[in-house]
Structure formats: C-alpha cells, structure tokens
C-alpha cells in the first residue's frame, strides 16, 4: 500500500490542489458538471471562451465523431462578458477549485479590454488567452500562428490584467510551436496551454458533402494525444532553456490518470481534461484520483513527476 503523496502544484502563478483542470470549451461554465463531480475533486477549471459580445456560434452540424476522436466547429458560441460576470462567475467563485477564464477577442484591443474587465474580478485566478481557435474567421488561430502577433496580444493582456496571471493557449496548427511559446513568455505570460485542436475535416462519401457545416473543424480526443505529448515535450524544453519560470499546461486526448502522468513526465506542470468529459461527465475527477494513485505508487509528488522523462 503506497502512501498518499503531495498533489498540489504551483503553475502559471496559480496554486492548484491537484494538477488536473477541466479544459475550456468542454466544461461549460462549471455548473453543467456539478451533479457529476465532488467539490474539490479537480484543481480547477478553464471556462468556455468569453468574448466581449455574446456569440451565437456556427450553423449545425457542429460536431462529428471520428476514429478515436471527434471534430468540432462550434464557433466560440458564448454568453458574452456581461452575462458571464453577472450569472456565471458568482457561482464559480464560490467553488473550491481555481477559476481560469478563457477569453477571446477579434483584435488586440478586445483582448486588452477583456483582460482589464476580468482582471478586476476577485473570483478570477488567471486568464487564458485563446489565440488558437480554428473555427472563427477573425482573431483565433490567426493570432496564434505568428510569434509577433502572439507577443503583441499577450503583452496587451498582461498590461491590463492588474497582476492576474496570463496564460496563452496555443494552436498545434503550426510548423514549430516553440517560437510561439517563447513569444508568449517574452511578453509576460506565466504559462502556455497546449494543444488546442488539430485542424481537420470529415467527408460523407455517400453525399460527397462535408460532415460539418463549417467544412473544417478541430480534432480532439485520444487520437491527438501523441501529437500533444510531442509538442509539450518540445515546448517545455524550449522554455526551460530561455524562460524557466514559465510553465506548460498540457492537454490533448487525456482519458486516464496515466495519460495525465505522461503529460507531466513530458514536461507539463498541470494538465487539462477536455473531450474525456463528454464521454463521461465524471472523467476529470476520476482522472485526478487515478493520477494521485499513480503518483503514490511511484512514490513521487506531482511536482516531482513534472519533466521527469528519462532519455
């Protein structure tokens, strides 16, 4: 019988009781999953991306199942900042876990405005900039594919966030992710989250039509885990050399505590559970418990596991 081990981590300027967060876009505003998770089961959550104005999102069909994964093209549908502050954040702020608000702007100015308004909220622990959504025309991935643009958006948000930690969520749809992570770190980000979904498509051969109304969408689920692990390892190495205080939050296809452990070993300080919550509403809590059991069995703390890859 292994002894319980220390699962608390300090990541991107935020203390988490355990390294498992629920990922943006897969956990709503938290309350949707409250019937299925014990309070405090996970380290915290990252909200659905919030924009200044409410967004209706893309026409359906918006999702399609693929081999060991799924595509989505939701189009950042969300209630908008005012509704979020009035009706979503108050409940979230009372929950035991950390609250990271994912935010999305169509311009540098909008990112700055969102950071200013959200940075002023005591219930918000950190901001996560979405510069990686593949399913919107303006902003989104357009910012995340150029180091200069990543740096500019990050610097603008950091300047307005009133000391709240800023994380930057990066897209895997680039040749080399390290320059994006370094640009975010240089501009004052305290963590980078990766990976967002992989740009993909699905076709119905019978009708010769795309299965998504948006034609293309983002691939997530267990199919993408090997890509996420590779990118986390590369980015963690690049940051260790140039910005050792900036953390990596790993995500992509985590379905079990062992998957989460692999991301920590690759160099992540914390992880996010996304699509798994769709397949089992209690997944994030189960994964946190499984990760704790793994750490106990290995006789390491979560912090010690991070970056422990043996090559």
């Amino acid at each position: 019988m292994s002894r319980a081990t220390d699962m608390a981590v300090f990541v991107g300027g935020v203390r988490l009781a355990n390294p498992v967060l629920a990922a943006s876009g897969t956990f709503g505003y938290g309350r949707e999953y409250s019937p299925y998770l014990e309070p405090g089961a996970i380290g915290g959550l990252v909200t659905k991306g919030v924009s200044l104005q409410p967004r209706a999102g893309n026409p359906p069909p918006r999702i399609v199942e693929t081999a060991c994964g799924m595509l989505n093209a939701i189009g950042l549908a969300n209630v908008g900042l005012n509704e979020f502050l009035a009706h979503k954040l108050p409940w979230l702020a009372e929950q035991p876990g950390a609250v990271v608000v994912n935010l999305y702007g169509e311009s540098v100015g909008e990112f700055a405005e969102l950071a200013r308004r959200l940075g002023a909220e005591p219930g918000v622990d950190a901001l996560e900039l979405n510069v990686s959504c593949p399913n919107v025309k303006e902003g989104g991935m357009a910012f995340g594919c150029h180091p200069g643009a990543v740096g500019e958006v990050t610097a603008a948000a950091v300047a307005e966030a009133q000391g709240k930690p800023v994380w930057v969520k990066l897209t895997p749809n680039v040749t080399d992710l390290a320059p994006m992570a370094l640009a975010a770190a240089q501009a004052g980000a305290q963590a980078v989250s990766l990976i967002n979904t992989l740009l993909a498509m699905a076709i119905d051969a019978g009708t010769r039509r795309p299965k998504l109304a948006n034609v293309v969408g983002g691939l997530s689920g267990p199919a993408v885990k090997p890509v996420g692990l590779r990118m986390v390892w590369q980015v963690a190495n690049a940051l260790k050399a140039e910005h050792p205080s900036v953390d990596v939050v790993g995500l992509g296809g985590i379905m079990s505590g062992i998957d989460a452990a692999e991301y920590l070993i690759a160099g992540a300080k914390a992880v996010q559970v996304g699509t798994a919550s769709f397949t089992d509403p209690a997944a994030a809590g189960r994964i946190a418990a499984e990760l704790a059991a793994y750490c106990a069995e290995q006789g390491v703390s979560a912090a010690e596991l991070s970056g422990s890859l043996r090559i």
Binding site: T26, Y36, P60, P61, R62, V64, I74, P281
Partner: peptide, 23 residues
C-alpha cells in the same frame, strides 16, 4: 434531435436554429 457529445449543455454541439435568432 441533433448530434450531441455531452448531453449536459457543455459541448454546444446540438444547436437547433431558434426563431428568435441564434441557437
């Protein structure tokens, strides 16, 4: 009915066009 991933209101996959605009 609509294609649906989570069933609990989080994935926003099961969008039905609303008479009032939006989904």
């Amino acid at each position: 009915e609509a294609p649906m991933a989570c069933g609990v209101g989080a994935c926003l996959g099961c969008a039905i066009p609303s008479a009032g605009g939006g989904y």
